[in-house]
Amino acid sequence: MSGRFSGATLAKSALAVAILGVLIVLPLAVFLAHSFYRMEDREIVRAFSFANYAELASNPAYRSVFVQTLWLALQVTFINTVVGWIVARAMWRRRQRLHFALILAVAVPLLLSYVIKIYAVRMFLGVNGLLNSTLTSLGIIDEPLGFLLFNMAAVRITLCVVLLPYSILPIFLTLERVPSRLVQAAEDLGASATQVFWTVLFPLALPGTAMATTLTFVFAAGDFLIPELVGGPNGFTLGRLIFTQFGLAYNWPFGAALAVLLVVVTLTAVVLGQRLAQPRWQRQNA
C-alpha cells in the first residue's frame, strides 16, 4: 500500500519537474546548445565549437559593452537602492490614509505599459521636452539642451526612473514589518534617530534591500528596450547587443552566447542577493 502511495507522490513530483523542465530548463538548454553553433552564409551550422565565446573574449568592442553594461547596472542599482531607501523611510509609519495613497502612487506605475513609461521619460528629456521648455521659459538656458537624450546618461536616467518602484516596494514592505517595539526599545536604551536607523531599521530590512538590489540589477543588466529607445549610438548594452544579434545581424548562435553570458551574470546576482537576504542570525535559527 505504502509503496503505491509513494509511487503516486513520485509521479506528481516528476510531473512538476517535467513542467519546470519544459518551461525553463529546455529553452535555456536550447540557448546553450545554440551558443556552440556557428553561422555560415546566413545558415546555422550545427557543429560544436567555442568560436562564439572566443570572439566574445577577444573582441575588445564586446568586452567594453559587457563592462559598460555591468557598470551601468551597478550604478542604477546603487542610485535606486539609496533613493528607494530615502523614499521608503519617508513613507514609513504614516497615517493610515496617507499610507495607502503612497503605496498606490508607487505601485500604479508598475501596471503601466513599459513602453509608455519609456516614452514618458523621453518626452520629459527631449529637445522639445518638458525639462528643456521649462528651463528655457525660466531663462536659465537660451537653447534647448541636446545632450539630455540619446546617450548612456539618458539610458541611466530612464532605467532609474522606470525601475524605481522595484526598489521602493520591497524595502518599504520589510521596513513596515519591523516591530515598533524594537524601535521603542532602541530609543529607550538611548539611541538617536540616526542610531535607530543604522542599528535596527537597516539591518532588519536587509532582506528587502537584497530583493530591491537583485531585481534592479537584473532588470538593468538585461534590458534592451530602454537603450534601444533612448540610448542613441553610444548607449550600447548587452541586452541591446543580444537584441540586434537575433534581429538585424541575424546571428543567432552569437546572440545565444551573449544570452548565456547574461544568464550567468543574472544567476550570480541572484545568488549574491540570496546570501544578503539571509543574514547570519536568520540562518542560525533555521
Binding site: 516591530p179 517595539r181 524594537l182 521603542q184 526599545a185 532602541a186 530609543e187 529607550d188 536604551l189 538611548g190 539611541a191 538617536s192 542599528t199 535596527v200
Partner: peptide, 16 residues
C-alpha cells in the same frame, strides 16, 4: 525617551 535615565523591560522582551 533616549535622554531619560530610565530603562524598560518590555512585555514581549523586545530583544533585537
Amino acid at each position: 525617551a533616549s535622554q531619560r535615565p530610565f530603562n524598560t523591560v518590555f512585555q514581549d522582551y523586545a530583544l533585537f
